[in-house]
Nucleic acid binder design. Structure first.
Length: 276
DNA sequence: CTTTCGTCCTGACTGC
DNA sequence: TGCAGTCAGGACGAAA
């Protein structure tokens, strides 16, 4: 499930087609979460892909002349780069062909992802992006900023960090991992955190995301896997999905095990001994 | 205003 | 083996 590190990895992988002209856009299934307009292809064909930016879990594909394609991979979205034309596979909803013959397919079985068009002038004010919180890896995100965002919040820390208005780009996995690294219980009420703990949490968020991006970058072949898929790399998580296992920070003799609890109808994994 | 919950979707998995 | 049921989750919008 693509969160900020995976989306960043995809963004970097798309460098291969940046600078190329989009020669053909095939809408194979227009009923995405936000339906694609019927003239979608016409609006983009013939334009050069000038660059790909990222905001939280969104990508912004900037085309020459002003159009910006906002792309979100949702739960199950992937992008597949191929050297040339090939028979599309199941759930490839949109296929882009570039001037050198490279094709880029957007595949999304569950269709929680979306693509929608805006313009360079309006992109930052687009309703999908306007209320988004700070980029966690930027200088604009730090302990005091996080403290201000958490102040007065009565929801559990887990739920607060999933709110994209508070900080951009975290999902279920990296919230669990960041709370583990900060040694904070996901069930603590967000508004009760004090200075040092907030600082630890802000640093843990940065560290977890930075490490995950580095893991994607270090296995560079995975930017474009043998299958052509972009953006999924294996990552060793400390607690996510590790119910019943010992967390890395507990001694071999410790009896405690990673617990799974359900918060806001989502699984949370944490170590009850090291996260308080 | 804040917080929670239902909804969308399909593949993978579980259990009878 | 087959099939029904359950689960996974990002983000919106409705409800509390």
């Amino acid at each position: 499930m693509p969160e900020l590190p995976e989306v960043e990895t995809v963004r970097r992988g798309l460098a291969r087609v940046v600078g190329l002209t989009l020669t053909r856009l095939e809408q194979r299934r227009p009923d995405l979460r936000i339906p694609l307009p019927s003239d979608f292809a016409k609006q983009l064909e013939g334009r050069r892909l000038e660059g790909v930016d990222r905001r939280g879990k969104y990508m912004l594909w900037r085309f020459s002349g002003g159009p910006v394609l906002i792309v979100h991979l949702g739960m199950s979205g992937t992008l597949i780069l191929r050297d040339g034309p090939r028979a599309p596979e199941l759930h490839e909803h949109v296929v882009f062909t570039f001037s050198d013959g490279t094709t880029l397919a957007y595949q999304d079985p569950r269709r929680f992802g979306l693509m929608t068009l805006t313009t360079a002038d309006n992109a930052s004010q687009h309703r999908l992006l306007a209320d988004m919180g700070p980029e966690p890896l930027g200088n604009e995100f730090n302990g005091p900023v996080l403290a201000a965002a958490l102040k007065g919040r009565k929801s559990p820390l887990k739920a607060a960090l999933l709110d994209q208005r508070l900080v951009a780009g975290l999902g279920n996995i990296y919230v669990c991992e960041a709370l583990y690294r900060a040694g904070l219980s996901p069930e603590r009420l967000a508004g009760t955190l004090r200075g040092p703990a907030v600082e630890r949490l802000a640093q843990a968020i940065k560290a977890v995301l930075t490490d995950a991006i580095a893991a994607g970058g270090s296995s560079l072949r995975n930017y474009v896997q043998a299958s052509g898929e972009l953006g999924y790399f294996q990552h060793r998580w400390a607690v996510y999905g590790k119910e019943g296992e010992r967390c890395p920070g507990c001694s071999p003799t410790a009896r405690c095990r990673v617990q799974r609890v359900v918060q806001s109808a989502r699984s949370t994994f944490y170590c009850p001994r090291t996260q308080t």
